[in-house]
Design a protein around this nucleic acid. Structure first.
Lengths: 344, 344
DNA sequence: ATCAACTGTGCAAACGTTTTAACATTTGGA
DNA sequence: TCCAAATGTTAAAACGTTTGCACAGTTGAT
């Protein structure tokens, strides 16, 4: 059917081994033979069978991405697509293919990843999230598979990971409000089982503490990465007797919910409430008013994750490289936080 | 190293063939043998080697998605992620893995897809876009590969494709404005080399024609799927002597650009200009005012594309199924178009 | 009792590569 | 001139499956 290495060999009058060596640029092949074989390949339209190659070489030149079920959420769409773009771009540059796997729950996720990695279909895995106590991480770690985590693991501090300095980023966002004179600052967090929620909360608390500002439990609200959470947080905050004048939010989409609510209730942003959030998705400069946001370099996170994973696959033993990569963040100040509080 | 079918066979005291047959639920295997072999598999932690299986069965149980370089554009992020989710979900349900491929230009795209499909790494391809005269389609069609197009091909009308009835959808959007009394209606299109731009333009023109309304060339503007295009179209329209009172736009993100411009210039939506656009991305109900938009069922497009492709792979010969699937669309009327023009 | 059909299993070839070891030829230093 | 090293190529085994064919044993209708 398809043309194989044997067909090429026969037509070129050499052995299959020679053809194989031409393919891999083996140093001991003469220039003449190489030329001739390559011509025949073109002529016959030869394409190496990747499966056969993988079978014998025990390496697949592909990696897989675990897409969490939470990718269904609104927030995730931009974030994950951007991550995937970064991953695919760098992987492809390094000659790797990318598979996407997903599962409806943790059990399915493990089954999927196990099938792919134990079935020798992929050489490594990228995890796009970091839950606390994640059994998928347990599985990969215990069995010594190659993987990299986008985010941070509390269970295994020394695994390969690519992350932002979320504590610092949140510290920066909070300090930004403090520098504008805000003294009552709220925080809208994400699901408590995500490490990122914890880290950003810590940065917020640190900043308050360092500035000698009051921290009140009722100024901290938990939610999802959904605009509804923002809406609800807004209602809650605005009804407090001594309400915050500024808030830090875990994600831009949550901010959109807050904006919508404030608009409905005829509040003004930033005069009545200042907002700073995370992720700097493209629409955050399109909202009314435009949102101040911490750019976390999503594409760069994905790009670097590919890089790190493939490096680890290729230098199986070499432990010299950095285990944990930190992608720099950057506060984009826009109208939603441009309001100074004058002290009375 | 890893545990193979032979290890299982030896331990179970049967032949490798029997183990293989247990794996594929061959009818002639006795219940007792099957039980025993399966126990041993669990005990040994056996996982079939997918590569070896593919090599002999000449089928990979995977498909690939060609991610166009335009995925870098803003609009695309939500759209493509949603498509991918649909594709991956259905593929995984049918036991297929999904690979993502991309290329910086058409040449790279063809090389990538050729390597994967000729290298027998994937059984079929899903194309996420439909350009006019696309060489990737030429390549796939000429070589008789399995593929499905999300969109429509002008070159090959009878290839497998999943699409909306974009002409009708655009007709509906335009009719909606007409039914509110609008008589001067503009259209903001996308890049002219995309089939979808052409189809939506046609629906708009048909609707005007059927209602006996005037069509003016200056009311039709071409752009990209970017908010900047919307901004520019807005400036252009609002400076016309006899400007439109309503416009149909190729994409929600373009509408965001229009909204921003109108807001800056203190125009009111929908009073000064009514908007209806396409795709109904989640943020379109969050904008001020919320956008009227045609929901095209993005997830469903992806889901169906998987379904159709895999069906075609599995029934290689059977030509009985529908070549072209149309996903229903639905107009979501929101505030941006809720303004009737009274006849004078 | 006979034989056809069925049931359950094993043997061995095949899938398309890579790679080890071996071989033949050439080169060049002493 | 001789031998060691370098160069270029090949034969054959291996990777882990699937599957057509063969075979033995059982069943059941005549």
């Amino acid at each position: 059917m398809a043309v194989t290495i044997k067909d090429v060999a026969k037509k070129a009058g050499v052995s299959p081994s020679t053809v194989s060596r031409v393919l891999s640029n083996h140093p001991r092949i003469s220039a003449e033979t190489s030329r001739k074989v390559k011509d025949i390949m073109d002529q016959l339209g030869y394409h190496p069978n990747i499966m056969a190659k993988s079978l014998v070489s025990k390496t697949t030149n592909s990696i897989c991405i675990m897409l969490p079920k939470s990718a269904e959420e609104l927030f995730s769409n931009f974030f994950f697509m951007e991550l995937i773009r970064g991953i695919v771009t760098q992987a492809s540059r390094l000659g790797y293919d990318v598979l996407i796997s997903s599962g409806a729950n943790e059990k399915e996720e493990i089954e999927g990843v196990s099938r792919l990695i134990n079935g020798r279909r992929v050489d490594g895995v990228i995890l796009l999230y970091s839950r606390k106590d994640d059994p998928v991480i347990d599985f990969l770690h215990e069995n010594g598979h190659h993987f990299v985590l986008i985010g941070r693991s509390e269970q295994y501090p020394d695994i390969l990971s690519v992350d932002n300095d979320n504590v610092q980023a949140s510290y920066d966002a909070t300090k930004h409000l403090i520098s504008l004179g805000h003294e009552r600052i709220g925080f809208v967090s994400g699901p408590p089982d995500l490490v990122v929620s914890k880290d950003r909360l810590k940065g917020y608390l640190d900043a308050l503490h360092d500035s000698g500002l009051e921290m009140r439990p009722e100024w901290i609200v938990e939610g999802e990465f959904l605009q509804d959470s923002g809406y609800r947080a807004m209602s809650f905050f605005m009804n407090l007797p001594n309400r915050p004048t500024g808030i830090v939010l875990i994600d831009d989409v949550v901010s959109f919910g807050v904006l919508r609510g404030l608009h409905e209730l005829k509040y003004k942003v930033p005069e009545d409430l200042c907002l700073v959030s995370f992720n700097n998705i493209p629409l955050s400069e399109l909202s009314t008013p435009p949102l101040s946001s911490i750019d976390i370099g999503i594409y760069n996170l994905g790009y670097t994750a590919s890089q790190v994973l493939i490096q680890s696959i290729q230098n199986n033993n070499d432990k010299s490289y950095q285990k944990r990569q930190i992608i720099p963040h950057r506060l984009m100040v826009r109208e939603s936080s441009m309001y100074s509080i004058s002290k009375k």
